[in-house]
Computed example of a mutant assay.
Amino acid sequence: MTNTVKTTWKGDMKFESTNPSGLNLMIDAGPDDGGKGEGYRPKALMLSALAGCSGLDVVSLLKKMRAEVDEFNIDITAELTEEHPKYFKKVHVVYNFYGSDFKKDKIEKSVNLSVDRYCGVMEMFRQFAEVTTEIKYIEN
């Protein structure tokens, strides 16, 4: 399967990128780098892709296992290398589940399946970074 996007320069440091879904997104640098901050930063977009990929897996698996939670979000902290080209060398992914009476075995199975088997973006990150994960339960 081939994925294709087209990214077009819109002036200054701004680009517009197509998406197979038909929804386009803007990419821009911050003011310190000559941009106006009117779009996603490329490296932050990579982290959003990682969270989105794994999050979609987890939600789908939780639904199939009948282990729904009240709320769910993912926090990612990433550390860049010092030298150019700067890339993420360490990435920590925290899965936050909110609710009560958690089905922890099913939640952990869902996260582990995403991390170890289903999330292609996670696998891509593992090619260049040390990736660690953590699950947190927050009682409502």
Rank of each mutant, 00 (worst) to 15 (best):
residue 64 K to L: 05
residue 126 R to N: 11
residue 93 V to T: 11
residue 118 Y to Q: 03
residue 115 V to S: 06
residue 68 E to H: 11
residue 101 D to W: 09
residue 19 N to K: 05
residue 70 D to T: 13
residue 96 N to L: 06
residue 56 L to C: 08
residue 41 R to K: 14
residue 93 V to H: 01
residue 90 K to H: 14
residue 92 H to R: 10
residue 117 R to S: 09
residue 124 M to G: 03
residue 109 K to A: 07
residue 122 M to K: 13
residue 135 I to P: 01
residue 134 E to I: 04
residue 53 C to I: 02
residue 24 N to K: 13
residue 116 D to N: 15
residue 39 G to Y: 02
residue 38 E to K: 15
residue 71 E to M: 07
residue 64 K to T: 04
residue 101 D to K: 13
residue 124 M to C: 06
residue 117 R to L: 12
residue 60 S to N: 13
residue 59 V to D: 11
residue 25 L to I: 14
residue 110 S to K: 01
residue 91 V to C: 10
residue 120 G to H: 14
residue 41 R to N: 15
residue 133 T to C: 05
residue 88 F to S: 02
residue 20 P to I: 04
residue 24 N to P: 04
residue 66 R to D: 08
residue 74 I to W: 07
residue 73 N to P: 04
residue 81 T to C: 05
residue 63 K to D: 14
residue 34 G to N: 09
residue 71 E to V: 02
residue 83 E to Y: 04
residue 66 R to A: 04
residue 50 L to C: 03
residue 128 F to M: 12
residue 78 A to F: 06
residue 62 L to N: 01
residue 29 A to S: 15
residue 106 K to T: 07
residue 96 N to E: 10
residue 25 L to P: 00
residue 108 E to Q: 13
residue 123 E to H: 15
residue 130 E to Y: 04
residue 83 E to D: 13
residue 103 K to L: 11
residue 50 L to F: 12
residue 127 Q to A: 07
residue 86 K to M: 11
residue 93 V to A: 00
residue 71 E to H: 14
residue 38 E to V: 02
residue 26 M to F: 15
residue 49 A to Q: 06
residue 123 E to I: 04
residue 91 V to S: 01
residue 39 G to P: 02
residue 102 F to H: 07
residue 89 K to M: 08
residue 81 T to R: 01
residue 77 T to H: 11
residue 43 K to D: 11
residue 103 K to E: 14
residue 57 D to L: 01
residue 60 S to M: 12
residue 47 L to V: 12
residue 119 C to H: 02
residue 75 D to V: 09
residue 38 E to W: 12
residue 68 E to P: 10
residue 55 G to K: 06
residue 116 D to T: 11
residue 120 G to R: 08
residue 67 A to N: 04
residue 120 G to Q: 09
residue 40 Y to P: 00
residue 49 A to S: 15
residue 128 F to G: 15
residue 111 V to W: 00
residue 66 R to P: 00
residue 101 D to S: 12
residue 98 Y to F: 15
residue 43 K to C: 06
residue 64 K to H: 08
residue 114 S to F: 00
residue 43 K to I: 10
